[in-house]
Design a protein around this nucleic acid. Structure first.
Lengths: 340, 340
DNA sequence: ATATGTTGTGCAAAGGATTGCATAAAATAT
DNA sequence: ATATTTTATGCAATCCTTTGCACAACATAT
């Protein structure tokens, strides 16, 4: 069983208040005698006393817990994000509770509900991204919140994401420079911020280069590997297949690799590939995968810094931070000579 | 702000107890009139009432939360484990709080302390594995606990792991069958269960085949990539380097790949590689990596089932479950002809 | 001798929900 | 008309910690 302040008070013959104060190291502040302090501390230690965070949270009306919600913790991008958030939060004295919404808006909503019941002091959410009424409700409750990776244009909430448009621009411009013009884009979950902005960058880059956009080459609707596999298969079956594929996320790229292997398509000789996200294993894939890297550590640092600021200064203006993506060139894109 | 039962009671003119009962759907049990029930429910909805999990937990002396502790959530193996645990726990009506101990015993201990303060109803822990006094303390407190992936031989606690000895046997026997005899083992964190048992399997397999164990070929002490990189470099520098490397974990194998690429060593032509753990990306690496797969879903299912059973039947005998690993042969091991 | 300050500690309310026990009012039985 | 059930609800304690306010005892100042 677990001991309480009352138990210690009884054993030491002082009041509960005194025990509480001593265990908070407030002995000097309340001028509790050294003798009493020592006695209480020793009994507490003997009993293995542990505060009850529920009672404390209830009384103090705060928990020092932050709720984190991500769409897929087994996705390398998000597991890295969570890991870095964890480190940063710990530094600030916060604990956290992670929810995996499994890219499902309903699970996301119920997860947030449960975190609200737990009275977390703040939220860091990478929303599924197709709706934001529930996010608005958190804001209305005046609970600090920061969105990462995915945000909403018409929602005034602190957010940190990478500049997705720019990321796509980097990727597509690179492909164009290498001679490609028939470039496919395999999308992630549609109507999410990440996907729409990446798509937008793709289109802008093509237009600027004077390449007409072919809707046949814009496919897919899910960030997972299977989507990449299926859509690559169908792209390969086109009468005029693309010479390069740009995937909206790392798992999609894995699916593309699988489809190519199955169809004996060599990368980059027969098909070039570049992806958004740059997981640790990208350099060791066959071939080493060229990729758009997101500054994950910086995302986590910014997110925690912003959340902390909002907790301390609730009135501040909301900020939307866009961080710079980076193009990492490896061996999955071939230079081709235009046949015009 | 947040509303309480008291607010609803005041607004509806009934007592707090009645509100509580209605919101628990216990109207019939306590014979609360339909009219009252409807009124309370409607007011609760209008106000957006949300129970305070702290108050509830405090009163009920249980939280329906399970504490999960893993050594590295950015490791694909553990992120998959966590994902599956999450799914299974949700099915049973439990929430969970994840801690990443960063392969650091002290963080693990403080994480557990914090979870105990939060009064979690049970633990699922993949311990760092070098000490278990703190695990014993949980057991003494009679809080249900299940260890996954790593356990301790002289600690009588429920556990689910893969049969590591057998896994190593599968890997090494396969290498031997392909003609290898100079086989190196790059270890993970030493003195952990996972590492020691994998090492044991390595040794047994060699001995059975009549191959003398060369201590020069047993190196490393960390499950992360950098360890694989460094130790591969040093193995390659031996006067008689190994013809095959067996790595104790997936990240280590990535490090090995990096070192080989840097040194222009081709896999499998110049060096064969096989690893414990079989991450999603293994088939797409260069070359497709042969690996020992752990049944992650089954591990998660078993762990949750065992924890659930212990919560319901605290008196039952402790069980240690060993699951079967599986050898997935791909293209990273070459057949060589012995030059004797 | 009275006033003022310091030292060391305790009382009790508050935070929100749950739950065993009690009970008034209405219904039914004898 | 009285006794017994049933219906519908309320009271108050409990879970544990924190904290504003109070206060007794003693010291020091005037």
């Amino acid at each position: 069983m677990s001991y309480t302040l009352k138990d210690i008070a009884k054993k030491t013959g002082v009041s509960i208040s005194t025990v509480s104060r001593v265990l908070h190291d407030d002995s000097k502040k309340y001028k509790i005698s050294d003798e009493t302090t020592a006695r209480i501390k020793s009994v507490a230690k003997d009993l293995g006393y542990r505060v009850n965070a529920l009672a404390r949270g209830l009384r103090q009306q705060k928990t020092s817990e932050i709720g984190i919600v991500v769409p897929d913790i087994s996705n390398p991008f998000f597991s890295e994000v969570v890991k870095n958030l964890a480190t940063e939060l710990r530094k600030k004295g916060y604990n956290f509770i992670v929810y995996d919404s499994d890219e499902d808006l309903n699970i996301e909503i119920s997860g947030i509900k449960s975190l609200l019941e737990k009275r977390v002091d703040g939220f860091i959410i990478a929303p599924v991204g197709q709706d934001y009424n529930h996010i608005n409700r958190i804001k209305d409750l005046e609970i600090p919140i920061v969105l990462v990776d995915r945000c909403f244009d018409d929602l005034n909430v602190d957010s940190v994401s990478v500049d997705n448009v720019k990321g796509s621009l980097l990727a597509i411009n690179y492909l164009i420079k290498e001679g490609h013009s028939r470039i496919a884009f395999i999308q992630g979950l549609s109507e999410t911020y990440a996907n729409e902005t990446r798509l937008q960058g793709y289109k802008i880059a093509l237009q600027k280069a004077g390449i007409t956009i072919d809707d046949q080459l814009i496919v897919g609707d899910d960030f997972r590997a299977f989507n990449g596999y299926l859509k690559t298969k169908s792209l390969l079956g086109l009468s005029v297949p693309p010479t390069a594929i740009f995937t909206a996320g790392d798992l999609i790229a894995l699916g593309t690799l699988e489809a190519c292997r199955e169809s004996n398509i060599r990368i980059p000789q027969d098909l070039s590939l570049i992806t958004f996200d740059d997981p640790v294993f990208a350099p060791y894939l066959s071939p080493a995968l060229s990729a758009i890297e997101q500054p994950i550590l910086k995302i986590a640092e910014m997110a925690v810094a912003m959340l902390y600021n909002r907790i301390k200064n609730p009135g501040d203006e909301c900020r939307r931070i866009l961080l710079e993506p980076k193009l990492n060139i490896r061996n999955s894109v071939a230079h081709i000579v235009s046949n015009i």
